[in-house]
């Protein structure tokens, strides 16, 4: 606990914050990319995330294994996704309305079942110390990387490859771009979308488990500060590309760390403004990347917002 690193603390905290805070954004947005690429929007991921956080924490506490918690969260998330997918496959059902309903249901159920698990302390997910080469405790703390973060990075690459190079990716894209074309190819769009939504839900559940099992690492009713909702917006921001999602999540994490970091080096006034940094940043990037001709470049054609 020594070494005053002065203003270097700010970029370092942003790096650390990017790694610590980004993982839930990453998982939720990766899941949503797959769901939206199939032509559906699942706005209920906030509820899935909160339920994942609760079920992950509960199972980790009951079994003593954080990894079983992660699996439970993924399973619970997949069930939520499945429900969304099945309901939206009924005629005249709007995916956005179902999403909002499931968001409320997810948080409500999580609060209800989560009551007995606010007090107990569950085991944490392991972290890998990539800062071993440095003597500075600040660097070591910033580079304590959770396994799920690395997994998310690999997953982003794998999903990008899957979408571009595999038959499965092709099917997903066809279904997302034109139901008619998909049917002509003998694909059943509803089935693909249900599976894609279930997959998206599973990843959102894992994102929630990261919140309760690693950072901040405990279950309570205020655990999510809207990560599930922001991540859905990140997908649009990332133009439906898994690799872009990774960078968008990092950027958001880093911007979120700006507020506390500035205060810690003595830039103390206007902290409400620095806390708004992630949202200002989103606006700026959206404005810079917008164009009159291709505002929704990359958007799947079957999405209800583009139709």
């Amino acid at each position: 606990m020594n070494g005053d690193i002065g203003l270097w603390a700010v970029p370092l905290a942003m790096l650390g914050g990017a790694i610590r805070v980004s993982t839930p954004f990453l998982f939720v947005s990766l899941g949503e990319v797959i769901t939206e690429r199939s032509g559906r929007i699942n706005l209920g991921l906030e509820g899935t995330l909160v339920f994942g956080a609760m079920s992950g924490y509960a199972l980790a506490f009951l079994t003593g294994s954080a990894w079983i918690g992660v699996l439970a969260a993924a399973l619970a998330g997949a069930i939520f996704g499945l429900v969304h997918g099945l309901l939206c496959s009924l005629p005249r059902v709007n995916d956005i309305a179902i999403g909002i309903a499931l968001m409320l249901l997810g948080t409500g159920l999580a609060f209800f079942f989560g009551k007995p698990f606010i007090q107990p302390v569950a085991p944490d997910l392991p972290a890998i110390n990539l800062g071993w080469w440095s003597d500075l405790p600040q660097v070591q703390a910033a580079l304590r990387v959770n396994v799920l973060f690395l997994l998310g990075f690999v997953l982003a690459l794998a999903l990008a490859w899957m979408l571009r190079r595999t038959r499965m990716g092709l099917i997903l894209r066809v279904v997302g771009d034109s139901s008619d074309a998909a049917r002509a190819l003998g694909i059943r769009p509803a089935r693909v979308r249900i599976l894609a939504t279930a997959f998206g839900g599973a990843l959102a559940g894992v994102g929630g488990a990261y919140l309760s099992l690693f950072y901040p690492g405990s279950w309570n009713e205020g655990i999510s500060s809207g990560q599930g909702l922001i991540a859905v917006a990140l997908v649009i921001f990332a133009r439906w590309s898994p690799v872009n999602c990774f960078f968008a999540a990092l950027l958001f994490g880093a911007a979120g760390a700006l507020g506390p970091a500035l205060q810690s080096v003595g830039v103390t006034s206007g902290y409400y403004l620095s806390y708004a940094a992630p949202f200002v940043l989103t606006l700026v990037v959206l404005i810079l990347s917008s164009s009159k001709s291709g505002a929704l470049t990359g958007a799947p054609r079957e999405l209800s917002i583009t139709k």
Partner: peptide, 24 residues
Amino acid sequence: VIFTGEWSMAVKEAEATNALADAG
């Protein structure tokens, strides 16, 4: 001192605590 601006906001509280530790 680091103000989080909210009575209950878990991630911000964790970030604030880490920032304090980073500042020595």
